[in-house]
Amino acid sequence: MTKTILLIDDDLDLLPSMITLLEEMSNYKVFGANNGAQGLEMAVEKRPDCIVVDVKMPELDGYQFVRAMRGDNTTASIPLVILSALAQDKNKFVGLLSGADYYLIKPVSPRDLLQTVDSAMQVTEDDRIRRMREFSEQ
């Protein structure tokens, strides 16, 4: 069965480029959303196998989106990758603490993006529990 990926970014150059990239370079089925709220609707409706989400967006930001996803039992196990221009350690920390599996800083090379999406889909629930435990120890 073809895996589906949801891309959420408000940038009108970047979003189409990522959609084309994933369509051309992988076997995934790709959906795109322009903002967090629309992304949330599509996530619930399509149940993608992985979501790549930006942070600074209108309506609902990336952190809120990730927390909303993890807070809902039906979407809690979907692999999440944050892709943001916010490059500081604290942004990364907040992103991972919110429940994202990976935090990528723009610009990311296309190969790294594809690889990260692949790796995110390998993350298991045990991995997440272990990561959260490490966070709480820090």
Partner: peptide
């Protein structure tokens, strides 16, 4: 900083696609 990152990443994506797929496109 924020403004630059998005179009540059978009360009990287398109260049990668053209690089690997230009024959069967």
């Amino acid at each position: 900083n924020h403004e630059m990152r998005n179009p540059i990443m978009a360009m990287m994506n398109y260049i990668e696609i053209l690089n690997t797929k230009h024959n069967d496109m």
